[in-house]
Design a protein around this nucleic acid. Sequence first.
DNA 1: CTGTTAGCGCCTTCAG
DNA 2: CTGAAGGCGCTAACAG
Lengths: 344, 344
Amino acid sequence: MSKRQNLNAGSVTLLDVAREAGVHVSTVSRALDPAHHARVKEATRQHIEAVADRLGYRPDMVARGLKSGRTATVGVIVADLGNTFITPVIHGLTAAVEAAGMMPMIAETEDNSDRFANILDHMLSRRVDAMVVMSARSADRDILEAAGRILPIVVAGRPLEGTTLPEVVVDEHAGGRLIAEHFADLGHRTVAQLRGPVDVANFPRRDQGFSDACRERGLEQVLVPETATVPVIAEGRRIMDALINLAAGMPTAIFAHNDLMALGALSRLRQDCVRVPDDVSLVGYNDLPMVGHVTPSLTTVKYPGMDVGRLAGEMILRLLGGEQVEGHTLTPQLVARESTRALE
Amino acid sequence: MSKRQNLNAGSVTLLDVAREAGVHVSTVSRALDPAHHARVKEATRQHIEAVADRLGYRPDMVARGLKSGRTATVGVIVADLGNTFITPVIHGLTAAVEAAGMMPMIAETEDNSDRFANILDHMLSRRVDAMVVMSARSADRDILEAAGRILPIVVAGRPLEGTTLPEVVVDEHAGGRLIAEHFADLGHRTVAQLRGPVDVANFPRRDQGFSDACRERGLEQVLVPETATVPVIAEGRRIMDALINLAAGMPTAIFAHNDLMALGALSRLRQDCVRVPDDVSLVGYNDLPMVGHVTPSLTTVKYPGMDVGRLAGEMILRLLGGEQVEGHTLTPQLVARESTRALE
DNA sequence: CTGTTAGCGCCTTCAG
DNA sequence: CTGAAGGCGCTAACAG
């Protein structure tokens, strides 16, 4: 029964254990540290471990952090936990760093640059060992790069135009292409995009990839001047509304820049009794866990979030180990479901 | 330009500032601490602040934590970030504690008791000042209560049967009732539940409230023996499948114990071309942001997550201030949408 | 108003 | 193999 777990004891220190065991603190320190416990006699070690267990000793990571300069914490900055494409990224990341005894500290910017600066500052104050940033907007670049000079930072998920920091991202350009090609293959000729924020690099890249493929395949784009300020349901609804109110004719296929926006668009279309996919085909992006279960199930682009998170975590560990790292660009995949159909 | 923000400096300490400013460290400490800077001459204070700013001084919260015994961190333990009813809770909580300069440290148990124990232990090691637990299963109660003896803990969202810890919860019994009464009002006579995990107290309580109201209103329940192991889409699909394969006749209205399970059920029904609400009415629980935008939009019970989070945060602050607190029980509300209809 | 001193809990030399 | 001593950065007494 080595897990007595006497939680009652508020804070049992090394000194308490030392006194109780009749040895010196540094002996206890060594006995309890797997890296050094070879330097202490087997018998005393066992005795010390027993005492520590009985007293419910729990190392104080704050004290350890002050001494060692390491907090075993990796700061994770995200834009919005409500956007569930982040969930798998966090899972992957957590799994990777947990293996090294580290713990993520997650904070949300709500896509607000002031909050971003505050959170960054706060995490530096807390002496996180490294950071993974999934929420950077172009305006945040300078301050982020500056932080990157004082600890390892990996940019993940959202690419950051012009950064020198290592990135784990998905080939957004390819993702945009996939969708335009899907439309072309289905016989669509007139298409449109509901575009996400222009200062979050994913979206302009999706736009670019989509537009390039449209040009190559001879698709005509109906341009909606508005772009979403934040990539959420309500904004998808708003941009869809703008498209509907354009003088130009309606396209037969629409690419919403992410799944949430697609859900918003769907809801706006339904309001006018426009059927998907009968009257218009609709595609999202990210493959959120639920979009395969809505009606109609959404054609989308699978975002390999788990891999992004895992790779980011591994990069962090390598950087902390003093190694150099290369960025990664993963490849997205189209998932065809019911919300798109071929024109006859 | 008081925000020079010289991030370059890796770690400028109080001593560095003191040397540069030609004063003693403790003077710097006082000058920079809003609570004590009255005790230092205005002129020196301004000088010190200027120097600190120029050097890019950033307080070391690790050192401060060691000295003061406070880390300004509140541990938050959740089951699954993918279940977005948690998002507003986190927002409310963050807003509340941020106002006091504290930061939440979020960790996910993935509804696994071993992980729960590990995370708890880890957070205690990190000397979080307090904890908010939203993921407790009944098996975790003892270990959690033990931790509650060494720091303030608030149980939020998921009630914990038989706990002595303060709770911020929603009246789940009332929530279950609302749904049965909604069914009765619409003229349904034969109903069923797709039940969530029995060891997460929310679900048995929803069951109880629903069943009580059924009895009062003379509704007959088709009992599905299976319950979900985890309240997610896949399990909703599985339990729906079990209901379909029962020898008993199909009910005309179904209560899935949360929105994710309802989405899974919807997807299973669709597979058999059973229409919602034409053939069967379906209700979820939580009012996730997207369920008002799926087709059919889901009738559900609004979970006041923001309030739960805010109240939990405020309770934490009060507990840290040495005050006594009372638990809160909030009242849920039915949101009628398209997935339920009156029988003719 | 400012400087001095001590120590939070731990780890890491350096001696014995 | 074990004990002693110093210090990580900061703050809270206590002096002056």
